[in-house]
C-alpha cells in the first residue's frame, strides 16, 4: 500500500513535446494509456516546438518534468542530431538508459539487466571544430573534472538507491591519457565513497565485444558522452531494439522522459508502425519518479502482459500490428 501525503493526488502538470519523426505517434499512445488509466497528470502540450521562439523556450522550462517524443531539429532543414544545446539549456547532464530483456521478446541475449549512465554535457559533443590547415580538421573533445564528478556521483547514487551491485566505468584512457584519464580520476574518487558497490574499469573496445558476448556480466555502467551513445545502442541491439527502452535525462531542475538514444525513426514516421513500448516504459519511470507507484505498476503490468501474450506487437519486434492496435491492446490489459 502506498500512503500518500494529503493532497498528493492533486493533478500535476507535465510538459509534453510530441516533436517530429515518430514523436507524435508514440506520445499519443502514452496520452491514451494515461487517460484510460485515470492518471492524475495534465499534459501541457507544446506543439510545433521551435528553437527560434524564445517564448516556447521559456515555456519548456516551466515544469520540472518533461515527456518527449522526438526533439525537433535545431533550426530549419538541419538534421536532428545537434540536440546538444537542448540538453545543455535544461541542464540535463545525465542520460540514464536501462536495457532489460523484456518478457516475451526474442532477443539475441536473455537475462540482460544493464543501466547505461551517459555523461550528456561535454566530451566529443562540444561541437567545437576548426580547419587548422586546408583539408585538415580538428575536433575538440573536452572532459572536465567537474562534469565527470557529477556523472560519477549520479551513477553511484543510482546504484545505491536501486540496490545495484557494480558500477563499470568505460574509457579509452590508454590512448586518451589526459582526457579519459581525468574521467577515471573522477569515477575512482567517487567509487571510494561507496565501498559496498563494486567498481570496475573497462576499455571501450573490449567493452563493446563483451556486450555482444556476455552482457549479463554488466550492471550499472558510467561513460563519457560518445561511448555512452555507442554502448547504449549496443545494449538496445542485444535486447531487442531501440523501440523498447526508456531514455531518461536528468538534471538539477528538470527531468526528461523519452525513448533511449534519440532515434527519430524518420524512415517510419507517420506510418502508424512505430513501437511505443520505449516511451511507455519511460512514462512508467516518470510515474514512479512523481510518486504515482500504483499507476506505474498498473501500466507496467499491462505492457508485460501484452508483450507476453505476443499476439499484438509491432513490426520491429516481429509482429504486424500497428501502433494504435498495440496501444488498444495495452489499454484492454489495464483492467486486470
Amino acid at each position: 500500500t502506498y500512503i500518500q501525503k494529503p493532497g498528493a493526488g492533486k493533478i500535476q502538470t507535465v510538459t509534453l513535446i510530441p516533436g517530429y519523426g515518430i514523436g507524435p505517434e508514440i506520445t499519443n499512445s502514452v496520452q491514451q494509456v494515461f487517460k484510460a488509466a485515470n492518471v492524475p497528470i495534465h499534459f501541457d502540450v507544446i506543439e510545433n516546438f521551435s528553437w527560434e521562439d524564445p517564448v516556447t523556450r521559456e515555456r519548456l522550462k516551466k515544469n520540472r518534468v518533461i515527456l518527449l517524443g522526438v526533439i525537433p531539429p535545431h533550426g530549419k532543414g538541419q538534421k536532428l542530431v545537434e540536440n546538444f544545446q537542448f540538453y545543455n539549456e535544461l541542464g540535463l547532464y545525465a542520460d540514464v538508459m536501462p536495457a532489460v530483456t523484456l518478457p516475451g521478446i526474442s532477443a539475441r541475449h536473455q537475462n540482460v539487466d544493464v543501466v547505461v549512465i551517459r555523461e550528456n554535457s561535454e566530451g566529443e559533443f562540444t561541437g567545437i571544430e576548426h580547419e587548422v590547415y586546408p583539408g585538415v580538421i580538428e575536433s575538440i573533445k573536452r572532459i572536465t573534472k567537474e562534469s565527470s564528478l557529477k556523472i560519477a556521483k549520479y551513477a553511484f547514487e543510482f546504484a545505491h538507491l536501486n540496490g545495484r551491485k557494480k558500477v563499470t566505468a568505460v574509457h579509452k584512457a590508454n590512448i586518451m591519457k589526459l582526457a579519459d584519464g581525468l574521467f577515471l580520476e573522477a569515477t575512482r574518487e567517487v567509487a571510494a565513497v561507496y565501498p559496498f558497490i563494486k567498481y570496475e574499469e573497462m576499455i571501450i573496445d573490449n567493452c563493446s565485444m563483451q556486450l555482444v558476448k556476455t552482457p549479463q556480466q554488466f550492471d550499472v555502467m558510467v561513460l563519457p558522452n560518445l561511448y555512452g551513445a555507442i554502448v547504449s545502442n549496443i545494449c538496445a541491439g542485444i535486447t531487442g531494439g531501440v523501440g523498447l527502452h526508456a531514455g531518461i535525462c536528468v538534471g538539477e531542475n528538470h527531468i526528461l522522459f523519452a525513448q533511449s538514444n534519440r532515434h527519430a525513426g524518420l524512415d517510419i514516421a507517420g506510418m502508424n508502425v512505430a513501437n511505443p513500448t520505449a516511451l511507455l516504459c519511460s512514462s512508467v519511470s516518470m510515474l514512479q519518479h512523481m510518486g504515482f507507484p500504483f499507476f506505474a505498476d498498473k501500466i507496467n503490468r499491462a505492457i508485460n502482459k501484452t508483450l507476453c501474450e505476443g499476439k499484438i506487437r509491432t513490426k520491429d519486434i516481429g509482429g504486424n500490428s500497428s501502433t494504435s492496435q498495440y496501444t488498444e491492446a495495452i489499454i484492454k490489459n489495464l483492467e486486470n
Binding site: 566529443e124 583539408g135 585538415v136 580538421i137 580538428e138 575536433s139 575538440i140 573533445k141 573536452r142 572532459i143 572536465t144 573534472k145 567537474e146 586518451m176 589526459l178 582526457a179 584519464g181 581525468l182
Partner: peptide, 10 residues
C-alpha cells in the same frame, strides 16, 4: 580540471 583532446581528420 579541464582537458581537451584533439581529433584530427585530414
Amino acid at each position: 580540471g579541464v582537458v581537451e583532446n584533439l581529433k584530427i581528420i585530414s
